[in-house]
Amino acid sequence: MLGFVVRRLLSSLIVLLLASFVVFAVFYLGPSNPARPVCEGAGGRCTPERLVAIEKQMGLDKPVLSAYGEFMGGIVKGREIDFGASAYDCTAPCLGVSYDTRNFVTDELKERIVPTILLAIGGSIVFLVVGVTTGILAASRRGSSTDRLLVSGSLLVSSIPYYLLCLIAWIFLTLQTNIFPATGYFPITENPLKTIGGLLLPSLVLGFATAPAYARYTRGQMVETLGDDFVRTASAKGLPRRRVLFRHALRAAIVPIVTIFGLDFGALLAGTIFTEAIFSIDGIGRWGLEALDSPLDLPVITATVLVGATFIVVSNLVVDIAYGFLDPRVRIG
């Protein structure tokens, strides 16, 4: 097991390096020049000579590989960053300084990650509870009108474009009727209740929009396991229907659901762009989106990609390890 984890960690590291390098290179070699706003913002005329000088100072003239090496080195041991007019002593783990806000990316990341994590957890609770319950209910009454209602209902919800759902919810439930408190992220250290209030509607919308996929997936898995021999055995033992359904059928059906959930949760932690943007939550997704505005905020983009990729890779690993606990055949075999 340990060997497996170590091997997986190593291969995960390679994936992370590759993903971050590709993103870094694409934007580094791209048309947007981060030196220009620095040059223009410094006062005076931005002559081509000055621009070149600033580029040189910022290290933008270096070959992409060494610039990337410098960036990654900063994560491990920190580095000096020179913007010409101002210099920064960026301590490890250093993800650079935002070209836009001139804040340390690491510091901003620490703040931005909290609402994203909270939103991911909130949304997950909603879609797991709603989706999985709906799926079990539909499967256990397969073919009945309840089943058909749940299936078509979930199809209806999932056919609405997600951004539209967010907008409708926001306009009708907070803007016009005040049923939900104003959305957004309010620091959890100040007023946790307000934090929860601000993330309540976004979590619900995210949850309910994702729930249909889980409902259908759970239903499919449950229908399959309910037809399995061991479920028939459980009934033949004289067990109550509820026990057959939950202890026997669901126990087997839950394994692939956990797999999908692990991957989804990792993706949610990487940032939910629509949710964060529409409900004005300052999370990772919105941050990454803003960093794409011209001029490109390269350190922020690289950081968000790196964080997102890390979450996805780690959740993959967690799923693989969880599999061993959920399925004894994998654990011992």
Binding site: D228, D229, F230, R232, T233, A234, A236, H248, R251, A252, L326, D327, P328, R329
Partner: peptide, 12 residues
Amino acid sequence: FQDALAALHPFY
């Protein structure tokens, strides 16, 4: 039942 591998729950 016929096929004991399928008829017994794999996870218990």
